[in-house]
């Protein structure tokens, strides 16, 4: 299947050599998107973390042991596994920019999309969100909360895109050609080491355009053919190889053989 293309392609390039695994992106995401803390969050397979930092290791003994951290948002795949399976069109890739939407009032919670996504980017609301007393005053006014029983995921802080467009409109600019940095998800804004660069992958004026083409750039599980809009980069070969499932060719980001 061919990846769906738009004129604008919002994407990230995450430099894994810069990521320290501090988790600021995860926290910023939770705040921005009004994710309620769970009453009992001891089962990590049930918590909501649209942005999740994974730890990678080269599995070598000391002194060669190395660690890397990999922040994983939704990849907003060009050929998403989740979209065609949804029985009720509660998730779609149909907007300029290529962000994969999630329509909470439409979702029936069948979780077929979760079974489909190999990146585990989708989360189910096991309980209704309950915000601890006082916290409701700090909720973000632009993001809706989700009821129990529906699936949710990262949407590159979609309301920030709307706001950025509004702002440019008001200033008399073209909302379909946002300058680099005008729109930024919370995670990339907050990252203290600047590991997450965000922008339009197709716009040569945006930094990500060049970064994604760098020889150190790769995409997770490239060979499965989901065409993610999130790129990673690392100077370390083992990190690049690990990202593409030790792809048989050994070349990071190698053309996939399978269609």
């Amino acid at each position: 299947m061919k990846a769906k293309e738009f004129n604008i392609k919002w994407g990230m390039v995450i430099d894994l050599d810069k990521c320290t695994g501090c988790g600021a992106c995860m926290t910023a995401c939770q705040v921005e998107n009004n994710i309620a803390p769970m009453v009992d969050s001891s089962n990590k397979l049930r918590t909501l973390s649209w942005m999740l930092v994974f730890e990678m290791s080269n599995k070598k003994p000391c002194p060669d042991a190395e660690i890397a951290y990999l922040p994983r948002p939704c990849m907003q795949c060009g050929n998403p596994a989740c979209v065609p399976v949804c029985p009720v069109v509660a998730t779609d890739k149909n907007e300029e920019g290529g962000i994969v939407s999630q329509i909470y009032p439409r979702c029936i919670g069948c979780r077929y999309c979760m079974a489909a996504c190999p990146y585990h980017a989708r989360y189910f609301n096991w309980e209704d969100p309950i915000f601890p007393k006082g916290m409701e005053k700090a909720l973000s006014p632009s993001t809706s909360t989700r009821p129990r029983g529906v699936v949710e995921k990262c949407n590159f802080c979609h309301t920030r895109l709307q706001n950025a467009k509004d702002k440019v409109r008001m200033e008399g600019g073209n909302p379909e050609a946002l300058p680099d940095g005008a729109y930024m998800p919370a995670c990339s804004e907050v990252c203290p080491t600047g590991a997450i660069t965000f922008g339009d992958l197709k716009n040569p004026e945006h930094k990500v355009h060049e970064l994604a083409k760098s020889e150190n750039a790769f995409r997770l599980l490239e060979k499965l053919g989901l065409a993610p809009q999130v790129y990673y980069m690392s100077k370390r070969e083992w990190v690049r190889k690990l990202g593409d499932n030790y792809a048989a060719t050994g070349k990071p980001g190698a053309e996939k053989k399978h269609s």
């Binding site: 009720v88 979702c107 029936i108 919670g109 069948c110 189910f124 009821p147 529906v150 699936v151």
Partner: peptide
């Protein structure tokens, strides 16, 4: 399904 009252959406 997580939202049984929406079963008819199908």
């Amino acid at each position: 399904i997580g939202q049984p009252i929406r079963a008819w959406f199908g």
